[in-house]
Every structure is written in C-alpha cells, then in structure tokens.
Design a protein around this nucleic acid. Structure first.
Lengths: 167, 167
DNA sequence: TTAAACTTTCAATAATTATTGAAAGTTTAA
DNA sequence: TTAAACTTTCAATAATTATTGAAAGTTTAA
C-alpha cells in the first residue's frame, strides 16, 4: 500500500467511525485529514481534498472548534484562515471523553435519576421501574466517572498499570 | 412524576441514547420496555406499547437476539413467542461492550494497523501518517482492552477500587 | 471608503436510514 | 391434512440527516 491509498483508507475509516464518538462523517473526515497533515490547511485545501462543498466545510470546521478539537492558526502573509487539530492522541481522547460526557451521558444520568426517584406505590411494576433505572443509573455513572478519570490522567500511569496487570 | 410518565420518559431517553451504544431507536426502546417489564412480552404487547408496526418489531427483536441481549421465552399454554431482556446491568454492559468491540472497534484497529505499516519512504507526509495512525492504533487498542476487561470482571472489584481510589 | 478576498448562513435538495403493512412463509392444534 | 394463528420478508414510503451552493455577511488591504 502506498501513501495515497493509505491516506484515503485512513480518512474514510475514521470518517465512518465518527458515529462511534458521536460526530458526523464530514466532521470526522476533516479531523482525520488535519490529523495526518504536516501543516495547517485552509478551507480550500480541505474542500478540494475531501471533495465537499464550502458550506459543509465551514459548518463542520466550526463544530470541530466547538468541540475544542480544531483550532484556527494564523499563517503570516496569508489572509485566509488555516486550521490544525490536536495532534496528541491522549489529549484528543481526553477532549472527546469530556465532551461526550457533558453532551450525552450527563443528561441521561439526570433523567435516570428523576425516573428512579418516583414515589414507590408498592405495585410490582413501579418497583421494577425504580429498581432497574436505579441500577442503570449507577452503572452509567460509574462508567462515566471511570472513563473520564482514566482518560484524564495525563501521565496515564493508572491505565498503563491496569493494562499490564490484566493483559 | 407518576408511573406512566416515568415509564415513557425512561423509554424515550433510552431510545435516543441508542446511538451512543450503536443501535437504532426502535431497538433501544424495545430493550428498554422489556428491561422494566415484570414479565415477558409478546410481539403484540410491544407493538401496542411503543406504537410501532409488526414488521419493525419483528426485525428489531431479531437484531436484539443477534446481539444476545434479548431471548425468546416459552410461556406454557401460549402459542405465540414471548421475549425478555437480560435484567442484570453488569451482564448487559458486558455483552454490549463485547459486541461493539467485535463489530466496530476491532475492524478499525485492523485498518489502523495496515495503514500504519506502509513502507516509510522518508517523506515528511508519509512519516506523519505512520506516526499518527500508529499512535491512534495504540490508544484505540488500549481503550478497547481496558473497557472489555473492566466490564468483564463479574465481581467488578477492580472498577470499584479504581473508582474509590480516584473519586 | 471601497472593492476584493474571504467566511457564514440557510433554504432547497440529495442521501441515508427507519418504518410500514401486505404478502409470503411457518408452525401447530385439531 | 388443513386452516387458523402466528412470524418474517421486503418493496414502497416516510422520516431524518447531511450536503450543496448561492446570497448575504465580514474582514482587510490599498
């Protein structure tokens, strides 16, 4: 496999993986492109490489900036804007985990909390609802905390030792 | 909040969370309904409760069985089929993690491996591609292993102690 | 200031994904 | 066997989501 094929394969795979970390295809592909680029790219570069429209590029770049994954960089002597992505995978994982937690997991935990704290009227079905949503809430909460903690360790010694210990 | 509202809220929240664990809305809602039901339900029950068609119910039940989350149960004296879901959240998490890993994460790791092992032709862009995809591969691999291990611990002492330690 | 170079917005449309429901298929009781 | 009770399949359609591209908006150099 040569460079162009490898590049294409990486971008399309990462793009389709987008759903897994909760963003859309174009967004993931732009991030992927920036991730393997040796220098900041401008809108034109991205549009051309991924064959997507100007509007699409603009909107998705903005979303990536919202997430805190992509930043504008000024290239001296150039009028237009250039973009780079966070290049350190640890930091990237940290940002993604934090954002997903905030956007999706936390709100779900809140609902589960509300639902599991309804008044127990002693009917079987109410008891089951309370019991099951409470269990789900506890689990979701634990996994969320754990994921954030693990990914937050800059030095990551814990992850490493846990991995070593369990492999 | 009374039972009917709480039930509805739980089902719709869990349904929209479906995407987060990689299944569609109807599938997640069926699972949610079974999860808080005190007894196995038949197709008719599910269709009626969620207001979805027979075909939709049938297809999504089958997918849930494919995942190993829902099982058929025979109710004596009844001709039609009844369904239940795994009621233990730990076990549910274990199944979901395993399936997601197998269906989505493992294939991505494979591609990252291929891409990161292309021949180094000493150009800057090739080097960057190799370096970055390798870093991503290592991270993905670690997180995948970790998640499976954590969720696999039946007794879950590790998760508990890690949580306690870090909170 | 102004006009060229750029970015953003957003209505229209395309692409994708989910859902329906009727027809075909299967199972079981009599 | 057969016909009633059930489940599955799948083409048609609906719903949702992503994308385009032109118009409007903004910035900057001269």
């Amino acid at each position: 496999m040569e460079y162009p094929e490898a590049k294409e394969k990486f971008i399309s795979t990462w793009g389709s993986l987008g759903t897994l970390w909760g963003i859309n295809k174009a967004m993931a592909q732009i991030q992927a492109l920036l991730f393997i680029s040796t220098k900041p790219l401008c809108m034109e570069d991205i549009m051309e490489d991924l064959k997507i429209s100007r509007g699409n590029t603009s909107m998705n770049l903005r979303q990536l900036m919202d997430w805190g994954i992509v930043t504008k960089v000024l290239v001296s002597g150039e009028r237009k804007e250039f973009f780079t992505t966070e290049k350190d995978v640890q930091e990237l994982a940290r940002i993604v985990a934090k954002e997903r937690s905030r956007r999706e997991i936390k709100p779900v935990i809140k609902v589960l909390e509300e639902v599991s704290s309804i008044k127990d009227d002693n009917t079987e079905k109410t008891r089951e609802l309370i019991k099951q949503t409470k269990a789900l809430k506890d689990l979701t909460d634990d996994l969320d905390t754990l994921m954030n903690k693990l990914v937050n360790q800059k030095q990551n010694w814990l992850t490493k030792s846990v991995l070593k210990f369990m492999k």
